[in-house]
Nucleic acid binder design. Structure first.
Lengths: 195, 195
DNA sequence: AGCATTCTAGAATACGGATTCGCCAAAAGG
DNA sequence: CCTTTTGGCGAATCCGTATTCTAGAATGCT
């Protein structure tokens, strides 16, 4: 019952992602999204109530995708070296496999993408990081036997911030990641865990 | 000869910085900058030909300021441990002393701030990083006896990217830097230099 | 076929914000 | 005091974009 859809939400999200990555977040205009998807503007509004909502959903979709990769990765157990290696390798691989979304997430903050976060997505935003926070506490417990604030901070710095640092500048400049990067990052990560 | 200026360029740059930091780059409208500086919009245009030029100058001013801090810092000589300690300490101190500019530089890319870089500032942009690149090569030479591409990459990762990573997430969330952070960052930095 | 429903389509409209422009004010020199 | 020059001032204008609105098309149901 009803006409068969010609455009899906994901079509517009993909189009928006492409534009954001290529020409920056402010260049994501509804007209351009529509053009990139081969659709008229009205069809975009048929799927998304507003530009902010479109971008917010793009953000959520991207965050969910990285998170899934992070959560699905095998935990490192109580071996700091192993945890370091896996976290860094995972980050580098994910960036290589999802260049667009990597750029979106690493080079923009939510606020830069979405001017005013739509109420409709309020809850969505609230619980977004819970699973990752849990996983980090799990790592802290496995490595140090406790999930104290300090232990969690340490794990986050090592497993999140350092891989991030390894990748970010290159992602911004567009240069390829140098081959020695992984080794350095693992060393740094390991040191942060051990210290 | 001529009326005495009531507003200086820096007044508007400071106002713009405050708005960018508080409400994000897109919220930096000329009307708001003027209001924040207690001036009418016309006076802003008397100093800056366009919004892009204003933001570009703000960017350049901020970059110059960090660079000065980085360049003025005493070099670590051939001791990786010392170099690591100094780089991390410098970064943490600078962020603490210049919270506004730190947020501007660490949380925004140039492209997010300035839509289209004004031609008038073309050269200004070109040579902006030369001095820092030189300094990094100097560090590479002092530490490893050579400024090969790989050595420079290593030094940059350790002395720039890691301190950056240590600070960025907190800067975005607004939380204070945890006391153990410096120690972890130094350990990571040192490991990246030694490996 | 008639009807309800789900979409496509894109022209018309509304609006926020950058930029312009004409005019007034305050020094400084003669 | 008159003239020149540098600045302050802010209402009016212009433009790019988000958003709305009216039509029409495709599909399933009875």
């Amino acid at each position: 019952m009803g006409r068969r859809p010609k455009f899906a939400e994901d079509d517009f999200l993909d189009a928006a992602l492409g534009i954001a990555v290529a020409r920056g977040a402010p260049a994501v205009t509804i007209a351009d999204v529509a053009a990139a998807a081969g659709a008229p503007v009205g069809s975009v509004y048929h799927r998304f109530a507003s530009r902010d909502l479109l971008l917010a959903r793009l953000w959520v979709r991207s965050v969910r995708r990285v998170q899934r990769a992070f959560l699905d990765a095998p935990p490192g157990g109580d071996d700091p070296g192993l945890a370091a290696e896996r976290a860094v390798a995972l980050a580098l691989r994910w960036v290589a496999e999802h260049p667009g979304e990597a750029r979106l997430l690493l080079l923009h903050r939510r606020e830069d993408l979405v001017r005013r976060w739509p109420r409709e997505l309020g809850e969505e935003l609230a619980g977004l990081n819970d699973a990752v926070a849990d996983a980090l506490r799990g790592h802290a417990r496995a490595l140090y036997g406790r999930a104290s604030k300090e232990a969690v901070e340490r794990v986050t710095f090592a497993l999140v911030d350092i891989p991030y640092a390894a990748v970010r500048r290159r992602l911004a400049s567009g240069e390829p990641l140098p081959p020695t990067l992984e080794r350095m990052a693992v060393a740094a990560c390991r040191a942060a865990l051990a210290d």
